[in-house]
Amino acid sequence: MTISTTKKLLGATVAVGVVFALAGCGQAPTESGGTSSAPETDSDFLPCLVSDAGGWNDKSFNQSAKEGMDAAADELGIKSLEFESANDNDYAPNLETAVSEGCSLIISVGFKLSTATVESALANPDLDYAIIDDWADNDYDGTVDAPNVKPLVFDTAQAAYLGGYAAAAWSAQSGVNKIGTFGGMQIPSVAVFMDGFQLGAEKYNEDKGATVEIFGWDSATQTGSFTGGFEANDTAKQTAQGVLDQGVDVLLPVGGPIYQSAAAAIADSGKDTVILGVDSDLAVADSSVADITLVSIMKAIDVAVHDATIAASEGTFDPAPYVGTLENEGVELSGFGAFESKLPEGLTDELAALQEQIISGDITVESPNSP
């Protein structure tokens, strides 16, 4: 059984395959296109995508965004331009280049591009913009700072709640009764996973009379273990090791490539610890960790990018914020893959019931980091 269902966002649907296409570095954009029958679109329409420093092959939100843009370009039978940022200093120049190249729609990937995106949008009011995982509200007044920027945000706490419940069930079955998490930067789009993860584990304890402990995050105080960035480096590995040293047998690394550091720390430990993926179905995106990936907490970034691109091509782009939820299938839990036959009896039915209760409002997943 899988909690994953066909994604339907913003009034359109698409099946996006897992394509690991690498873009060139920094200054030069890549192009993609196709020849399939397409919706009627402006012949001058040019969609563009700007990554954050994680790059297109991060097995996470950059890659998912690129897959969505590529799928839309193929469907429309046009070319798209994609600009890969090597570091934070590339954001503004890449956006400037996108404008100079004649881009009609510019989608930026991640909160770190927020300031540069708003500045570009204000300077180019006739262009459409969207940004992933950010409200484009840099003065924190509760409104988007430019009227032509569409936030694409996700209430990931809902899907993470299911992931936390599953993690607690797995650890309780093993007799370890300890799970953990750590993140990249402490920002809402990261902490929202950790909040949901903790709340789901607490729900398991409540329902089962269990005593599974959570390490690496305290939702009440909003404090926990973070690497300070999203690079898979020694700092990330040491941070993962610090949580593993608590004796956990399930670990949730939140922050793109840092899962690689978690996997390395687990390999060094020689223990049977499993991880949870984030954003994309990690067991599919990276086969090298499929054997330790219990399940993934996913955001349909690819579909949100696809649908925003199609709408912009048809002249129906709406800058109103989009919030992905379990109900609209903007967030979801993946299947369990090779672990399906090893799960506690009845777990998948319990998860399905919890999902329906969240959608109906009988359960409210309350995270201060939810959009």
Rank of each mutant, 00 (worst) to 15 (best):
residue 75 E to T: 14
residue 102 G to C: 03
residue 86 A to E: 12
residue 73 A to T: 15
residue 77 G to C: 01
residue 87 N to I: 00
residue 96 E to P: 00
residue 98 A to E: 10
residue 96 E to S: 14
residue 78 I to N: 08
residue 115 T to S: 13
residue 99 V to S: 10
residue 108 S to E: 09
residue 110 G to A: 03
residue 93 P to Q: 09
residue 110 G to M: 03
residue 91 Y to I: 06
residue 109 V to K: 07
residue 77 G to E: 11
residue 101 E to Y: 08
residue 86 A to I: 05
residue 88 D to G: 15
residue 88 D to S: 15
residue 107 I to K: 01
residue 79 K to A: 09
residue 80 S to R: 05
residue 108 S to P: 02
residue 98 A to V: 11
residue 95 L to M: 15
residue 94 N to K: 10
residue 95 L to R: 11
residue 74 D to C: 00
residue 86 A to L: 05
residue 115 T to L: 10
residue 81 L to Q: 11
residue 78 I to R: 09
residue 76 L to A: 13
residue 76 L to C: 12
residue 109 V to Y: 07
residue 93 P to C: 06
residue 112 K to Q: 14
residue 88 D to L: 12
residue 103 C to W: 12
residue 76 L to G: 12
residue 86 A to S: 10
residue 109 V to F: 03
residue 75 E to N: 12
residue 88 D to V: 08
residue 96 E to K: 11
residue 97 T to I: 05
residue 103 C to V: 08
residue 87 N to M: 04
residue 92 A to G: 04
residue 74 D to G: 12
residue 98 A to C: 07
residue 73 A to H: 01
residue 93 P to Y: 05
residue 100 S to F: 00
residue 89 N to Q: 14
residue 114 S to R: 01
residue 77 G to N: 06
residue 109 V to S: 05
residue 100 S to L: 05
residue 108 S to K: 04
residue 105 L to W: 11
residue 86 A to V: 02
residue 75 E to M: 09
residue 95 L to E: 14
residue 115 T to G: 08
residue 83 F to S: 04
residue 75 E to G: 05
residue 111 F to I: 03
residue 92 A to W: 00
residue 78 I to M: 12
residue 94 N to S: 11
residue 91 Y to A: 13
residue 82 E to C: 01
residue 108 S to G: 11
residue 108 S to T: 15
residue 91 Y to V: 02
residue 82 E to H: 01
residue 92 A to T: 12
residue 115 T to D: 14
residue 85 S to Y: 00
residue 103 C to H: 14
residue 105 L to A: 05
residue 89 N to H: 02
residue 113 L to S: 14
residue 105 L to H: 13
residue 113 L to F: 05
residue 85 S to R: 02
residue 85 S to D: 06
residue 105 L to T: 06
residue 108 S to N: 09
residue 91 Y to M: 04
residue 86 A to N: 05
residue 75 E to P: 00
residue 105 L to M: 08
residue 80 S to I: 07
residue 74 D to M: 03
